[in-house]
């Protein structure tokens, strides 16, 4: 039971504000030449020593030395203010970008939903888009075939399923997209506030579905949101990120309490 599903070891992510690289090709070449010779990169070294000194370049450690682990079957909620590094952490976990330092180990199949309906093509029909979206999220044709009736039924767009999605209303579009996401069969799921979709009725339906997914046995969830009530309902563990560092981690109740008291002043 206490098997570890995700292990995060000292990950950090460095971002450079403003322009790409060192602003000039000359700077980039210079930097590259330093690296080739195995010397320390002068452009990052400045920051390491003193990050208050105004430099020509602005470097930001979006995340710094984050470590945690998630047990199999657990659900972890990540909260924090805007710019605390939540999205960066999600991006690293979902392999969209690589950490600057550290490593992440994952056991089992993982799917991350940072957005619903990724890869939907307006010219394809609803049905084709289910296959398209499913494939992008790592399902093969057989797996989609197994669930397709459920997906269509849940979305409530049966009548329009063979119409190109460009003719859909935005509500129908979102419902279909969410429906595909909710019926993925993976051991680990990463969710980023995808719940706030559709009208009130569908929202409730989504929440119930998500809760069901979270409490599913053996499924590991990482969930990021600003809606504390939802996080508390869905997760057992929590992490409060503050300025790229873990402020507190533990039981979700304690974490949300720390977060709300922090907000007060």
């Amino acid at each position: 039971m206490s098997e570890v599903a995700i292990e995060v070891n000292n990950i950090s992510k460095l971002y450079i504000l403003g322009k790409v690289g060192t602003n000039t090709l000359h700077g980039d070449l210079n930097r590259w030449w330093y690296r080739v010779r195995g010397r320390e990169d002068p452009y990052t070294a400045i920051l390491e020593k003193d990050d208050r000194r105004p430099t020509q370049q602005d470097f930001i450690w979006s995340l710094k030395d984050i470590s945690f682990e998630v047990k199999k079957g657990a659900s972890l909620g990540i909260i924090g203010k805007n710019g605390a590094g939540k999205s960066t952490l999600l991006k690293l976990l979902s392999r969209i970008t690589n950490p600057t330092e550290g490593e992440i180990k994952i056991k089992g199949r993982m799917v991350s939903l940072l957005e619903v309906g990724t890869g939907f093509h307006p010219e394809l029909t609803g049905r084709e888009n289910i296959y398209m979206n499913g494939a992008i999220l790592g399902m093969n044709r057989k797996e989609v075939n197994n669930r397709i009736n459920e997906i269509i039924e849940f979305s409530g767009v049966e009548r329009h399923i063979d119409t190109p999605v460009k003719r859909y209303s935005s509500g129908m579009y979102i419902r279909l997209a969410f429906s595909v996401a909710a019926h993925l069969e993976t051991e680990i799921m990463i969710l980023d506030e995808v719940l706030s979709v559709g009208d009130q009725e569908f929202q409730q339906k989504c929440l119930n579905k998500m809760e069901q997914i979270c409490h599913d046995e053996g499924r590991t969830i990482i969930y990021v949101s600003h809606a504390l009530a939802t996080v508390e309902r869905m997760c057992t563990q929590g992490i409060y990120l503050k300025q790229g560092k873990i402020n507190i981690s533990g039981l979700i109740k304690d974490v949300t309490k720390a977060y709300t008291s922090d907000l007060k002043f």
Binding site: E101, I106, A135
Partner: peptide, 30 residues
């Protein structure tokens, strides 16, 4: 020994990961 994915800051340049590519053949088709 059973990690299915390991994400590191640096990775092997020659690691083409063809088996993973093969798992996504349905995506290529789509």
């Amino acid at each position: 020994q059973k990690w299915s994915i390991i994400i590191r800051s640096k990775s092997n340049l020659l690691d083409f990961n063809l088996s993973e590519l093969w798992r996504y053949k349905d995506l290529i088709r789509m």
